[in-house]
């Protein structure tokens, strides 16, 4: 089996005239946890959102180059299909406030109008919530609104929602930046579990988090991918001066 799941080739992205991602080449393997870090405005989130084409939702946003998902260029694929195949978890937990926990998990099916039998839905809900380490906490209140959960639980619910669609790849956009430390560690612990089944790309501002959870780390600066290497290597002896300045907090 081909081990590369996502490969960007000369990927460029713009907001209007603002060139925010410049010629990024990166190749990500299956079942890897990739941390993407860099200072604010370095293009890391734009790159992440480019992978499932959320980038182009912003008016004036354009992209060029290739992002190959299983050797197919997502930029040529049907957006709906791309996004169904690539899960995404956002900065702030965003369960649908009008749906129950149960409905939130299967929201991908409900909202797309995909018919799923009740029995199948039950299975999906239990499996996804178990994978996101939330099942034991919510199994007795599946029909309560998702917004009654704590921040960390809500974020794990959002992860369950992404898992329910059986994606190959899950993108995380600063998934713990709105969470308290306890919730953060519960989500971080989850990354280790998820790694066995999925490939995770995590954009984070928190360098220690990148160090803790990832196998490899990519460092973006001014729209360029400056360095992409084994996380251990990156945090003991980075190859580029800019990476070193960033991770040691000596950035301008």
């Amino acid at each position: 089996m081909e081990n590369t799941i996502v490969k960007a080739e000369n990927y460029n992205a713009w907001f209007g005239d603002n060139h925010v991602v410049k010629d990024v080449n990166i190749s990500i393997n299956r079942n890897e946890v990739i941390a993407v870090m860099g200072p604010s405005g370095c293009g890391k989130t734009t790159f992440l959102r480019g992978i499932n084409r959320m980038h182009e939702l912003i008016p004036g946003a354009t992209a060029k180059g290739k992002i190959l998902l299983d050797s197919q260029n997502v930029l040529d694929m049907n957006v709906i299909y791309v996004r169904a195949k690539i899960g995404m978890v956002f900065q702030r937990p965003n369960p649908f406030p009008n749906l129950s926990i149960y409905e939130n998990v299967v929201a991908g099916y409900l909202l797309n109008g995909i018919k799923v039998s009740k029995a199948d839905k039950d299975v999906i809900v239990e499996k996804s919530l178990t994978s996101s380490a939330l099942w034991n906490e919510v199994k007795d209140s599946l029909h309560k609104k998702g917004t009654f959960l704590s921040g960390g639980q809500q974020q794990r619910l959002c992860i369950a929602r992404a898992i329910a669609m059986e994606p190959e790849l899950i993108l995380f956009d600063e998934p713990t930046s709105a969470l308290d430390p306890i919730s953060t560690s519960s989500v971080e612990a989850l990354f280790h579990e998820l790694k066995t089944k999925y490939t995770l790309i995590i954009v984070t501002h928190n360098m220690q988090q990148a160090a803790r959870v990832s196998d490899r780390t990519a460092f973006f600066y001014m729209g360029e991918l400056v360095e992409f290497d084994d996380t251990k290597q990156m945090f003991t002896a980075p190859a580029d001066q800019r990476t070193q300045n960033y991770i040691t907090g000596r950035f301008s």
């Binding site: 499932n52 959320m54 939702l57 957006v79 709906i80 299909y81 791309v82 996004r83 169904a84 195949k85 899960g87 995404m88 956002f90 900065q91 702030r92 965003n94 369960p95 649908f96 406030p97 929201a107 991908g108 909202l111 797309n112 109008g113 959002c158 929602r161 992404a162 669609m165």
Partner: peptide, 19 residues
């Protein structure tokens, strides 16, 4: 309504009119 709500739905591959 927070934009994150719309993004959540779009990221699940839901078409715009359904969102």
């Amino acid at each position: 309504l927070p934009p994150s709500l719309k993004e959540a739905a779009l990221s699940l591959g839901v078409p715009y009119h359904r969102v």
